[in-house]
Design a protein around this nucleic acid. Structure first.
Lengths: 105, 105
DNA sequence: TATTTATATTGCAATATTACGATTTATATT
DNA sequence: AATATAAATCGTAATATTGCAATATAAATA
């Protein structure tokens, strides 16, 4: 196989998994950290920062955007990327829920 | 390829990615939620709960354990699994760092 | 309109993941 | 000792991911 049985799980479970999966690669963690530092930047800045080729960075950005963790806005010939707070809040809520529940014991 | 360039990133970035990746599958999100609900359980309980075969569940548990998100202790012929709080705190810290940083603007 | 600049897409090879049947390991119980 | 129970491991097929060269797209500028 190799295909995840997504239809056997709830929408929320699948949604959280997509977000977590998007962060499940060191390059994408590095992109998030870089975006946090510079606030906003274009794809080329990340290509200069990371040891990866432009198509690879573009692909990682696409996955982060698809998960709702970043957003991009067109600025002339380039695209300005920045962190999308609602996406962060969604996964953060999952962990807060866990720790709150654990503390009640 | 298909192989992640782990050696080009920091240990912390790789560590966070491993934790996030472990949660990047709906079955493993479901296992975490189930563990939170029942506090502690054995592999067989999860097999009864999820639409997955025993070897598959065992594999998912291994990955969660490897990431430090759960821990297991031997209880006679079975193994008692529960959430490992320090693992949760590590990834939770990452998101708190992000939101704290974003609020300062 | 030709060129430059910035990013996305395509296609492909190497590797990783997912899932499960069959088997193995390890501890209890009879 | 034989059997039952619980979980891990092995082997394997199907599918997904990673990374990049080559190419395409799209907007600004000369």
């Amino acid at each position: 196989m190799g295909a995840t049985k997504t239809d056997h799980f709830t929408e929320q479970q699948n949604d959280l998994a997509v977000i977590a999966k998007a962060l499940g690669h060191p390059a994408r963690i590095a992109i998030m950290e870089f975006l946090l530092k510079v606030d906003t930047c274009i794809c080329g800045d990340i290509v200069n920062e990371l040891p990866l080729a432009q198509p690879t960075v573009s692909q990682h950005l696409k996955e982060l955007k698809n998960a709702g963790l970043i957003k991009g806005s067109i600025e002339g010939t380039s695209i300005c990327y920045c962190i999308n707070e609602p996406g962060i809040e969604k996964i953060k809520g999952f962990f807060q829920h866990i720790t709150e529940h654990l503390e009640k014991k």
